[in-house]
Write a protein that binds this DNA or RNA. Structure first.
Lengths: 136, 136
DNA sequence: GCTTGACTTAGAGTTTACTCTATGGTGTAC
DNA sequence: GTACACCATAGAGTAAACTCTAAGTCAAGC
């Protein structure tokens, strides 16, 4: 039976990587630049992800998949971890990102419609071609 | 009165740049990599954009603003300009991009909802803070 | 006791999509 | 006749976000 040295009660980087579909390199990179963590380490220097870390990773993943920049996310996390009262600043940051995101969704929705139009056009042309070849 | 040497009946790069909100550098770059053009030139080597060029630029701009990669667009344009019958290949390419685009819109819509949730939370907290300070 | 496979770090390299710099040409305005 | 405002090219540089490489540690299995 394989007993993995890295798993006691610990949550390893591999597990987190698989859970979120981010590479181990990306997770270490995110930690290095201060987007997540610092992640706690065992006595031998192995990362052990806590519930709080996982929550943050999940949030970061969601925002990154929407194209929100790493710089903005780092800024948000710094506000979040700050001793000061940053409620309003965080709210304003989010409102601003929301606005940008909405614009992007609109652009993409326009492009999607455009693609749909073209695809329909091609479907018709492919069909015409088929009919034409049948008439020979 | 200023008579621009570059405008006779010609459509200059500056005009196109302003019309589409793309820099002159970007337009030249797009031509260089084969995404648009080749654009016709006057005897002295000045670009003169035709209606057909403008249509393509507009399409490219729309697709780029939706995040469709330059590589994919070049491929599409190559199929478009090909002598061969590439109808079905173009349709398949568009269908594939449509699928990817739709997924991205979904991801972004999820993130938007997430942001809305957080913003509401912050609004409430900011309000609570205000009320609290008023009670003092 | 050595191989395997997981982990670590520091730092170099890659990809995408521009964006800028240097250098030079041309026509109009003062 | 020179300053200004355009245009051109070739090629170097940049920013963002990873991604990879090298070198090393450590525990389990054979």
């Amino acid at each position: 039976m394989v007993y993995n040295q890295y798993r006691g009660d610990r949550v390893t980087i591999k597990e987190v990587s698989e859970q979120f579909g981010l590479t181990k390199d990306t997770l270490r990179y995110y930690e290095k630049i201060g987007l997540i963590g610092p992640i706690g380490k065992t006595s031998r220097g192995i990362r052990d992800f806590k519930e709080q870390d996982l929550k943050r990773i999940e949030f970061v993943k969601c925002m990154r998949s929407a194209g929100i920049s790493i710089d903005v996310l780092i800024h948000y996390m710094q506000l979040f971890d700050s001793e000061d009262n940053t409620l309003e600043e965080r709210r304003d940051l989010l409102i601003n990102q929301r606005r940008i995101l909405k614009k992007r969704i609109e652009d993409m929705t326009k492009a999607l419609k455009r693609l749909d139009g073209k695809i329909n056009m091609y479907d018709q042309q492919v069909l015409d071609q088929f009919l034409e070849s049948g008439e020979k």
